[in-house]
Design a protein around this nucleic acid. Structure first.
Lengths: 231, 231
DNA sequence: AGCTCATATTAGTATAGACTAACGTTGTGT
DNA sequence: ACACAACGTTAGTCTATACTAATATGAGCT
């Protein structure tokens, strides 16, 4: 048995589909045709067509009218893309002065073009980092990724101490707003208030001691690790 | 008149064709179908087809059965790609430890994916350099490029490092002989000896480290760019 | 259970870009 | 001047990937 299987090069489109399917089926479920279509801004029949090809390539399992899940091979390929994306984002922000909220598009294009060698050189230059600028874990070169259980700020209870880990949107306007508010990955906060009926959540920023009020829609976008709970 | 014309995005293939045509028609002549095909490793009919499209896009002028030349717009696009390529090569060698001889392929893929912003950030980080690691001039962001002066191998001095640029003959026998000797455009050599009274020139091929002895008549046919001179 | 609507799939088409095989053109050599 | 070799172009095909329009499926409501 060969030490490492040389997997065939995948097209840009295929790589994008695999990343999308990874994101949508990460919590164990199926990625549906229309969710994939929405995420990639494609028409559903285009997705049906690609699903057939990916399935023949052994990258996904397709249950008709249900959705798809990645095979081991597909998952490997998806994690490789995610590693590329996150290493690129971190490299560009650390080394070339990009802001964490406008680096996404650049990484989105580069991730399909860079060699594995370049990614490993960048990762080495960064000291083999574990998290990208958004706080997302970076898969290792061997395809392992840290599993973290995250709760949204909207679900947290008053008294919870949280570490902000992921901002679950790509929208530049929202990302910029969060940055202005100091709500960026890595920040630690304590939940001090929650208004009833899906009302806003108030948090205290540990670093500055200042308060922030976050409406439910935005609170749902903030994934946090529970770091403690006030007795 | 608009401050800057927003040129439409070009495909990867189109960008490669424009770069090839720039190289082949740089000295003012026409780039022929088969030269383009050879450079891009494509079949000639594929080139004919693309030539038609490029011509309709206004990027080249096509004289049937003669060849093509870049329009002003095509030249701008080609120089943009060359700037990208050379800035990338320099950045990767200076900052990420690539060798000058294996950086080419990486840059070849990245040049199609990076944004103008990233190129300018890299160029700024390098101090707005004028030459890439191979000694080739880097076009400015506004599309100006230093004209390189070519010398024949017969004029070069012992110690000169040269890049073979053009073989100034049509004669198939001579062309075949040069090819057999590995003396083809793009090859880098160092002049190690010259016999007196218009005697032969000895060069060392950088790639293989082997020597070639070239008589004066043939040496005059080899146009080279001076890439360095031994102190 | 049956109807209906949201969702998925199939059918058919388009485009970019490549290929091979067949056909034109041109210029060189006798 | 003409024949032929070398080169260029046209014709026709293929693949990947997208689209729209039409059809099939399945899940929830009555």
């Amino acid at each position: 048995m060969p030490a490492s299987i040389q997997e065939p090069a995948l097209s840009r489109s295929v790589e994008d589909y695999l990343k999308a399917i990874f994101r949508l089926s990460n919590q164990g479920g199926f990625a549906t045709t229309s969710d994939i279509a929405a995420l990639l801004a494609l028409a559903p029949p285009s997705v049906s067509g690609m699903v057939k090809r990916l399935s023949e390539m052994g990258l996904i399992e397709h249950v008709p009218y249900r959705g798809v899940q990645l095979t081991a091979q597909g998952r490997r390929a998806a994690l490789r893309m995610i590693r590329r994306h996150r290493v690129l984002e971190l490299y560009l922000t650390r080394t070339l002065g990009y802001d964490w909220d406008n680096v996404h598009n650049e990484a989105e294009r580069l991730e399909h073009a860079v060699s594995d060698e370049l990614i490993e050189r960048m990762a080495a230059a960064l000291g083999d980092p574990q998290y990208d600028p958004h706080g997302d874990p970076i898969p290792t070169a061997t395809g392992d990724i840290e599993e973290t259980e995250l709760v949204s700020l909207a679900e947290a209870k008053v008294g919870d101490a949280l570490e902000l880990r992921q901002v679950m949107t790509q929208d530049p306007a929202r990302l910029r707003y969060f940055a202005e508010q100091g709500l960026v990955p890595g920040v630690r906060v304590v939940v001090t208030d929650r208004q009833p009926f899906n009302g806003p959540t108030t948090v205290l920023l540990n670093a500055s001691g200042t308060a922030r009020i976050v409406g439910q829609e935005l609170a749902r976008l903030l994934s946090c690790r529970l770091a403690g709970r006030e007795g």
